[in-house]
């Protein structure tokens, strides 16, 4: 076999904008580039918030419906709890040298990660291209995205 099962390209679909999911997506994309693997991200549904100029700096982690928080659901829903948990997580991440969302997007773009917005989701949320980050490579349909992922050694990941 010519490709020997090597991972050549990661196509990551980000459909959520909770901070833990956004970071998982960014770390995977950046990690791929660091290993010499191509990476592209397709932002769809709530994932679009991670590239929305006015929203990307205000993403939160989920304190409700997240059993791994080990926090009673009622408590997680109280005003300010989500913000507090988010602030704590951001502090921990800074210690690990994890960049904030906007800086991370700049790093991804400079590293050659292609970033696409989902056309359908943009229409649904009434977002225009100018609402999104300047580093965006374009707006695609699902079909376009699959075309981008063609070739031996491509893997797709849905977050």
């Amino acid at each position: 076999m010519e490709d020997q099962g090597q991972v050549k390209k990661m196509m990551i679909i980000l459909s959520k904008a909770t901070l833990e999911n956004v970071y998982a997506c960014f770390v995977l994309a950046n990690g791929a580039r660091m290993e010499g693997i191509q990476a592209e991200i397709f932002f769809t549904f709530f994932g679009l918030e991670a590239i929305h100029q006015k929203k990307l700096e205000h993403l939160h982690i989920a304190t409700v419906g997240n059993p791994a928080m080990h926090m009673p659901t009622m408590l997680g829903g109280l005003p300010g709890v989500e913000a507090l948990a988010t602030a704590m997580m951001k502090k921990e991440m800074e210690k690990l040298d994890m960049p904030p969302v906007r800086e991370f997007l700049e790093i991804l773009s400079a590293s050659g990660v292609k970033m696409w917005a989902c056309k359908l989701a943009m229409d649904m949320f009434h977002y225009k291209e100018e609402d999104l980050i300047p580093e965006l490579d374009g707006v695609l349909t699902v079909g376009d995205f699959y075309k981008q992922g063609s070739g031996v050694g491509t893997h797709m990941l849905f977050i």
Partner: peptide
């Protein structure tokens, strides 16, 4: 410790 961010 080295990272892409540090290099940048």
């Amino acid at each position: 410790p080295l990272s892409i961010r540090k290099i940048g």
